[in-house]
Design a protein around this nucleic acid. Structure first.
Length: 655
RNA sequence: GCCCGAGUAGCUCAGUUGGUCAGAGCAGGCGCCUUGUAAGCGUCAGGUCGUCGGUUCGAAUCCGACCUCGGGCUCCA
């Protein structure tokens, strides 16, 4: 047998005996690497370490430091989960168990439709740790469709997968040649447990262990409501104990930012049970912040070339027939109301109303572009299980705009629109954006191909002009046109989809909109739908989580709290308050009925950005003591004028 | 909508195998304290234990239905 020569990532070459595996290679490079090795990448494809390497291949050893390594850990942990469950529930069958962001899941069907309880999770966890302790190896085997069908004779979901894969219907893109060649792979563990799996896996169960089972949930087979409901177990898995505990800690931190919790704690919003699912009332402090957000939005639109319009909450069915909503969006609409022999629907969108405003008179090309803006409340019938605080509700207020322009104006409008969008979002402290371009859906869409193409190109150009990074979601567009969605990343790295810009050639068509061109002829305008914050309610919720309740000074419902040290300083405190209010700062004096420490704490808990403490020295010198939110220690003897100047700067710069 | 879980004072929660189990802290009212930077002391009031029905001598506790809330239902062997 001759030796084989392999190229390594650093450009060097290494020679090993023929038949050498990835594990041999890792050991040859060094014992440390051998210990850390999980997979081997061969010519860009991840494989098991036990696979023999071919002469001339370009290889690299994959450890938990890479996404691929971490994915293998999660995938293999899911495999152990299935092993434990099938071991503990005779007659149970399993479906799929992929790695996901931060972890993994596995879907099962228990005998007799039994379900998992939280106590079961503990028992499964223990069984998994036993399997890991045994350090069973993951052995890869290959077979053909018939062999696989026999092997998984008792497991209908696996058989369905086998049928699909062997028919080349699924998995081809992702599994590459495995699906296309008709070869099916499965893995067998030390104790005989077998799972259909394209791999690769870590070498043995002993390489796992830093995991936690998190929750049980129902999940439809293939995500399809008409399919059976499977029992899904979610877990998280990491390369080290430290990373696992770090992740669990981050989950706790995220929970602390939950807008539903903060909204109640900070007395902003509440959800009285008597109102119904997803319906909130805004308390004075919450309403104040919301008003500030809306005021800012109106101000920007006013200076941004928009005209304000208003529209009713309901309209007769003919409007929704003309718009196409009843054909394409009926599932998302509230049920109709019968009145005086006519049928009315609550509006799921504002666009048809804005169209009717445009259509109320004759338009000239000299009028275009026309930009209508409305903070318009819309009602959408969301599934009850989808409702979530302010983030997802059945009624919300869009910062909605519809722009009517000529085809020639489209590129310029889109470019300036995107710039406007980003500028408004930046004012609220977001500066990390990710865009998505969604193209024509396969079904349920209207309009001619060339219109879709032109619309899509217009959006793409706007993205490129703005220099925004974006991904393409093929088939993700609305029924009436392609769109751009803009996500922001919040303070703890979570993405939130806020803005949407959608081109629409069909609504002007449906409503027969026209303008008179310079040639004296009649032309059809192009329509652009867009929302920046999307839903004001949801945007408020996102801000609340982003800032963890500590709104920047310009948005804080209470900007300054003045605390007299003792009753004798009350008068001075009130004079400070007068100075603040004179300048429009939202302020409060809390009298010395309670100890200072307690009042400071109350101010901190309420997340007031500035707490002023005033005592004898301040009365004598016209100063204040400032205890600023987030500062390490208070600052004494600050001249009032200096503090006011700082406050002005802070509000002006929106920090 | 479907699966799992939860629902005790305004908030956070305790309540062992059904039998003084209707409690605590915070918040709130009142009084004392007059305070220099994250909880001073005392006292009072607050709940049909989500709702309705059932089992039982007896239910916050067990069973059923409903309501509301939470998690999940696109991540493809």
């Amino acid at each position: 047998m001759t030796d084989i020569t392999l190229s390594l990532p650093d450009g060097s070459e290494r020679t090993l005996p023929a038949g050498a595996t990835g594990a041999d290679l890792a050991l040859d490079i060094g014992p440390g690497l051998a210990k850390a090795a999980l997979l081997v990448s061969v010519d860009g494809t991840e494989q098991d370490l036990s696979d023999s390497l071919l002469d001339g291949a370009s290889v690299s050893i994959i450890t938990a430091d890479s996404d691929e390594g971490l994915y293998a850990i999660r995938h293999s942990t899911a495999h152990v989960l299935a092993q434990a469950v099938l071991d503990m529930w005779p007659g149970a069958t399993y479906a799929i168990g992929p790695p996901i962001e931060h972890g993994f899941y596995y879907d099962f069907m228990l005998p007799g439709g039994e379900t998992f309880s939280p106590e079961d999770l503990e028992a499964i966890d223990s069984r998994m740790r036993e399997i890991i302790e045994l350090d069973q190896s993951f052995e890869r085997h290959e077979t053909d469709a018939a062999g696989a069908m026999e092997l998984f004779a008792d497991h209908p979901y696996k058989r369905e997968i086998i049928a699909k894969v062997s028919a080349g219907e699924a998995g081809v893109e992702l599994s590459g040649e495995a699906g296309a060649s008709g070869v099916l792979s499965y893995y067998r563990n030390g104790d005989g447990f077998v799972d259909l799996c394209m791999g690769p896996h870590v070498p043995s169960t002993g390489r796992l262990g830093h995991f936690a089972l998190q929750k049980v949930a129902g999940a439809y087979w293939r995500g399809d409501e008409s399919q059976p409901m499977l029992q899904r177990i979610y877990g998280t898995a990491w390369a080290s104990k430290k990373e696992l505990s770090g992740h669990l800690h981050r989950l706790v931190e995220a929970e602390k930012r939950d807008h539903r919790r903060l909204a109640v704690e900070l007395d902003l919003v509440s959800w009285p049970e008597s109102l119904g699912p997803g319906l909130a009332v805004w308390h004075p402090r919450g309403a104040l912040v919301r008003k500030l957000i809306e005021d800012y939005s109106r101000e920007r639109h006013e200076t941004g070339g928009y005209d304000f319009v208003f529209s009713p909450h309901i309209a007769k069915s003919v409007l929704w027939e003309t718009s196409g909503h009843l054909d394409f969006y009926a599932d998302g609409m509230y049920p109709p109301m019968e009145m005086d022999g006519a049928t009315y629907y609550p509006k799921p969108m504002n666009c048809p109303f804005h169209v009717t405003v445009f259509d109320s008179g004759q338009r000239s090309y000299r009028d275009l572009p026309v930009r209508y803006f409305e903070l318009g409340a819309v009602y959408r019938y969301e599934l009850s299980g989808a409702i979530h605080g302010l983030m997802r509700s059945r009624g919300f207020t869009q910062d909605d705009s519809h722009i009517f322009c000529t085809r020639e104006q489209v590129p310029g409008e889109l470019a300036s629109l995107l710039e406007f969008t980003l500028s408004v979002l930046r004012a609220f402290g977001f500066d990390d954006f990710q865009a998505k371009l969604s193209t024509r859906p396969d079904e349920k869409s209207v309009g001619e191909d060339d219109l879709w193409e032109m619309a899509t190109d217009g959006l793409r150009n706007a993205l490129e002009t703005a220099g925004l990074s974006y991904v393409v979601d093929e088939g993700g567009g609305a029924f009436y046109g392609p769109k751009i969605d803009v996500d922001v990343t919040d303070a703890i790295g979570r993405p939130w989809q806020l803005s949407t810009i959608q081109l629409d050639f069909t609504l002007p068509e449906r409503f027969g909109l026209e303008y008179v061109g310079s040639d004296g002829g009649r032309h059809r305008p192009v329509m652009i739908h867009r929302a920046l914050m999307g839903s004001i309610e949801r945007f408020f919720g996102v801000l609340l989580e982003h800032f963890a309740g500590a709104f920047p000074t310009w948005l804080a419902p209470e900007q300054v709290r003045v605390l007299p040290v003792a009753a004798e300083h009350q008068e001075y405190a009130e004079s400070i308050l007068a100075s603040l209010e004179e300048r429009g700062f939202r302020s409060l004096v809390v009298a010395a009925d309670e100890p200072l420490g307690k009042r400071v704490r109350a101010g901190k808990v309420a997340k007031v950005p500035h707490i002023l403490v005033v005592g004898d020295d301040d009365v004598a010198n016209g100063t204040v003591g400032e205890n600023k939110r987030g500062a390490d220690s208070p600052e004494r003897d600050l001249p009032l004028a200096d503090f006011l100047a700082r406050l002005d700067d802070e509000v002006d710069s929106r920090t």
